[in-house]
Write a protein that binds this DNA or RNA. Structure first.
Lengths: 248, 248
DNA sequence: ATTTCATTGTGTACTATATACACATAGTTA
DNA sequence: TAACTATGTGTATATAGTACACAATGAAAT
């Protein structure tokens, strides 16, 4: 085990989205800080998963490392949505590394690079159980206890997600490998906060030759079983034209 | 004049685009470094405009400051296109601040935040004349002497520009306040590397109610004078629907 | 005064995509 | 065998995209 040097004034924050077939959720870390003597609750809120970068890793690697620690998963879809260096960003208590840094005459500044991560809920549920980490519906974040800076990052990530989802087929990252068209439709409705006509939605999907029907059908459901589909990135790459609009 | 503290390991690089009614250009700084004794040329290449951030400014302010120094202009269109922390990024000779930083035990790392800037050529020509700064056609960058990291940033910026220009009306930032439809068409053709049918292009622009014809016409041109138009951001904000595709 | 020149400005037919809208079907459960 | 629940399908209309050619303007040259 190598001991990494931390870069004190550069951090990465991950906004992790998941979909439970009903609504869009975000992965947050519960934080509780108590006074050492009295045991009184000083802070009780939620934070994004984030940490300083190490001196021997690039930004993407730092985000990957953080997500691995959080979910146990490698190969998570990751994309930067911005770098943030507001002067009033830092509100958290400072660790020793950081205080050393300031004492040596360097500026009391953090720049954080925001990553948005999309994960397939069905793959991660097990790994989370003994951590202070859980899913929260994105629609509830507004009312939650959460530091101003992290709430800001969350909304920037959500905006970026809504923008990108219309232009690139990244929403499939939120679904299991096999999914039904109703699940896909519910996902887009949750992402964009709209609703679509079922027939028109399916007509549109039918034009996307990279969404491929399987032989497999749903089993054990108390209604007509739905057909499963898969998303083929390979076919997507081959058949995409200069077209922009992906859905809507 | 306040003396600013520099944050040694965080920088901002600006990729500045301009349009001369013929082609898309990028603003680069010529760099020549000679050996102090022999006078032999050590480096002769081009760099992006960039510098470390100060401890009392946020990232946008740093980019604004750099552009002000370069062009004399305030109010330049600016947008982040990414943060970059590749371990092999740093190749430039180190200044004292940076060496101090390393000597104090901190990591030998720079993270740079890339900004893409769009400027109206007609407003900037004067201010540039006595600087080692000039316009280069983007099509020539491939063959130019330029550090690997800056070339990489340039291409990332160009990709981001081509993506954004299709989805938001930012191309107008590259034109003067009044412009002709032929100029607008040439601009999109230069940006995207394609060509459009004149009648169809104009039909499309006619649907954009925020591109407004003026009474004014071209004067002194040796052919039928073109009508001038202006872009109204106000009308754009009011009339845009959920639509994605802007041009193409 | 007339011609030449360069660039602007316009219309139509055809194709493709977007939108609005209602009912039969499959398979489980009661 | 009847009831339930979600799946899966088609058509008519409106809107947007594409392909394509020639007359009009005003300056400059003869």
């Amino acid at each position: 085990m190598i001991s990494h040097k931390i870069v004190p004034n550069i951090s990465v924050d991950c906004v992790v989205f998941g979909f439970d077939f009903e609504k869009l959720n975000v992965l947050l870390v519960k934080r509780e800080m108590k006074d050492e003597k009295s045991g009184a609750l000083l802070i009780s809120d939620h934070t994004l998963a984030g940490y300083h970068i190490f001196d021997d890793e690039d930004l993407d690697s730092a985000a990957t490392r953080i997500l691995k620690g959080l979910t146990g998963l490698d190969n998570i879809f990751l994309e930067q949505f911005g770098a943030f260096g507001q002067l009033d960003r830092v509100s958290a208590p400072r660790d020793k590394m950081w205080l050393d840094y300031i004492n040596q005459g360097f500026a009391d500044r953090i720049v954080t690079v925001g990553y948005l991560a999309l994960i397939d809920n069905t793959k991660v549920t097990l790994t989370l159980k003994d951590r202070d980490v859980s899913w929260f519906p994105v629609t509830e974040v507004r009312e939650m206890e959460m530091g101003f800076d992290h709430k800001f990052l969350f909304y920037k990530a959500l905006e970026a997600l809504q923008r990108k989802v219309k232009v690139e087929p990244i929403a499939f990252e939120l679904l299991p490998d096999n999914f039904t068209l109703s699940q896909l439709q519910k996902l887009y409705e949750a992402l964009l906060g709209t609703s679509f006509d079922k027939r028109n939605f399916r007509k549109k999907v039918a034009q996307m030759h990279y969404v491929i029907p399987l032989k497999k059908k749903q089993q054990g459901v108390p209604h007509k079983p739905a057909q499963y589909y898969l998303f083929s990135r390979e076919v997507y790459e081959k058949t995409r034209k200069g077209r922009i609009s992906f859905i809507i």
